[in-house]
């Protein structure tokens, strides 16, 4: 970050401006995360009134059977699949937006793409339920058009969860890729073509590498929340919608085994951090 020409000195003069924000973050984010780390090693919550002691049992529970690792793997796979589809669907749209459309049309379309961010995600997920279920909009519409009877009942299935999540997260990819693609000078693309590169070669060897920061940023922005998602699988997945996130939710709102929930959360956090740590150097190199 650029500095206002100031020389390196103590934090003193910056403190009054910084302190409120960072105190708030400490109370609402950093202390809670530390507390959760602490509680994940306890048998019971201290404030529950019951006797408690330190234990590794909560973490051992994760490895005791196939259940939790399987669910974690299912969540990671869900994250990867949703990220893959979002990148595949979002990148071409970002390219058209950045390199084909111009002026007011581009501005309007860009706005339309990011506008759903300002509508309620939960409701958008639920409206997919109206679309996808048997006797729902898609079913009725297709049967009204097609001469033969089809049965569309995607509701409470894995594809329904994927569709809902992709719908929720694809604008992130469009946004991040649009920003990096817009920064690529058109003459670079023309230069590659003038040197004999076909459209495909230009895409693969020039545009994709230059757009990599946007693709990775978009991917991270999608993967991380999807791995921890529980609302979308619950609404669209029904009984097939049991994922790692829904199990953690249960520990806190149904089973009330908070220490186990904390341990499961921390394992998820560790996995996410490892993935971010792998992505970070790629991002930095790409810049």
């Amino acid at each position: 970050m650029a500095t206002g020409g100031a020389s390196r000195r103590g934090i003193g003069p910056a403190l009054p401006l910084l302190a409120p924000a960072y105190l708030w973050l400490t109370v609402a984010i950093f202390l809670p995360l530390s507390a959760m780390a602490f509680f994940s090693f306890m048998t019971e919550l201290p404030m529950s009134g019951k006797d408690w002691s330190f234990t590794l049992e909560n973490y051992a529970a994760f490895f005791s059977g196939a259940l939790y690792p399987t669910l974690l793997w299912a969540s990671l796979r869900l994250g990867l699949e949703v990220t893959f589809w979002c990148l595949l669907i979002g990148f071409p749209a970002a390219y058209v937006l950045a390199k084909v459309l111009k002026g007011r049309v581009r501005e309007a379309i860009f706005l339309l793409v990011i506008l759903p961010f300002w509508s309620n995600g939960l409701v958008r997920i639920f409206s997919w339920a109206m679309v996808l279920r048997e006797g729902g909009i898609l079913d009725t519409a297709l049967n009204a058009v097609l001469p033969f009877k089809v049965n569309i009942d995607l509701m409470y299935s894995y594809p329904a969860v994927i569709i809902g999540l992709v719908h929720s997260y694809v604008p992130y990819v469009v946004l991040t890729c649009y920003l990096t693609l817009q920064a690529i000078d058109d003459s670079l693309i023309e230069a590659a073509r003038s040197l004999g590169a076909s459209r495909l070669q230009t895409l693969r060897r020039l545009i994709l590498p230059l757009a990599m920061p946007g693709l990775i940023a978009g991917g991270v922005l999608i993967f991380v929340p999807v791995v921890g998602s529980f609302m979308e699988p619950r609404i669209l997945g029904g009984r097939t919608g049991t994922f790692y996130g829904t199990v953690i939710e249960d520990q806190f709102v149904a089973v009330f085994n908070w220490p186990l929930g904390a341990a499961l959360s921390f394992i998820l956090l560790a996995v996410v951090l490892v993935i971010l740590a792998v992505a970070a150097p790629v991002l930095r190199r790409a810049q």
Binding site: A28, I29, L31, P32, L33, A35, M36, F39, L45, V220, V224, P225, V227, G228, S229, F230, G245, I248, E249, F252, W258, G261, A262, S265, F266, L268, L269, V272, L276
Partner: peptide
Amino acid sequence: AIPWLITGTAMLIFF
């Protein structure tokens, strides 16, 4: 970068 599920449950425990 941390999933809201983790942040949210951590806040619940701490608060």
